[in-house]
């Protein structure tokens, strides 16, 4: 392993790292928004909308992100919907993640014991208050482990962006291997940057999970 090579690669990886991070987190925010909306429509059993949300979740949970990206990035322009690779990446992570987030939140909403809603109403809360002040916060706490797992999964999935020629970490590694053939160094930097990206998230996730457990079961 040649240290000079590693140092000379650093700026390119750092740039790719920031791009990956930006697209990943924007996508995750989008997925959280989609997930909440979709889980609500299913939880409240809104007519028609809950059916659409259910179909959306099934479709996106049962197809690979790479295929989704190819379809949106290369297929859709043929119908006149052309979007940039970056938007495509954000939308791709958002749609894929939305379906996972939706499942996580929906099952947590259903896992809140019915007695909680009944007690809230017995205390004189309206349906709306019971949902916003009691059921939803409890469901959020319950969903923490699944949401943390989803965030890590989505950040890892960003590695397929290179297939639609976004200059992410994976693309940079492939590019540098092709240019200079310093395979070991290029792959080493790739691993290092993924560790920098995911270890903090994984660690923060564990802390959050522990806090959530305390909230549920007391000290």
């Amino acid at each position: 392993m040649n240290v000079d090579v590693l140092i000379s690669y650093f700026p390119r990886y750092a740039e790719a790292f920031l791009l990956t991070l930006r697209i990943g987190w924007l996508g995750i925010l989008l997925s959280a928004a989609i997930g909440i909306v979709s889980a609500f429509t299913m939880y409240f059993k809104l007519p028609v909308l809950s059916r659409i949300a259910g179909a959306y979740v099934e479709i996106f949970r049962n197809t690979p992100l790479l295929v989704q990206l190819f379809f949106v990035y290369f297929g859709m322009p043929k119908l006149g919907f052309a979007i940039s690779a970056e938007t495509c990446g954000i939308v791709g992570i958002g749609l894929l993640g939305g379906s996972y987030m939706s499942e996580a939140l929906r099952s947590s909403l259903n896992a809140v014991p019915a007695s909680q809603a009944e007690s809230a109403e017995a205390l004189g809360m309206t349906h709306f208050q019971a949902f916003w002040l009691v059921i939803f916060p409890e469901a959020l706490v319950l969903s923490v482990p699944a949401v943390v797992a989803n965030v890590i999964f989505l950040l890892k999935e960003t590695s397929v962006f290179s297939a639609i020629s976004l200059m992410d970490l994976m693309f940079t590694a492939k590019d540098l291997i092709g240019l200079y053939y310093d395979t070991t160094e290029a792959l080493f930097m790739l691993v290092v940057f993924y560790i920098i990206m995911l270890v903090p998230v994984s660690a923060a996730g564990s802390v959050l999970e522990r806090k959530a457990r305390h909230k549920m079961f007391g000290e």
């Binding site: 890892k156 999935e157 590695s159 994976m170 291997i177 395979t183 792959l187 994984s202």
Partner: peptide, 23 residues
């Protein structure tokens, strides 16, 4: 388990396919 949790499968694929050949 932690390695698998953190490394994207594509990175592992690249290491197994391109990395081992070179290293």
């Amino acid at each position: 388990l932690e390695i698998v949790r953190i490394m994207p499968q594509l990175v592992l694929l690249f290491i197994a396919y391109f990395g081992t050949t070179k290293a």
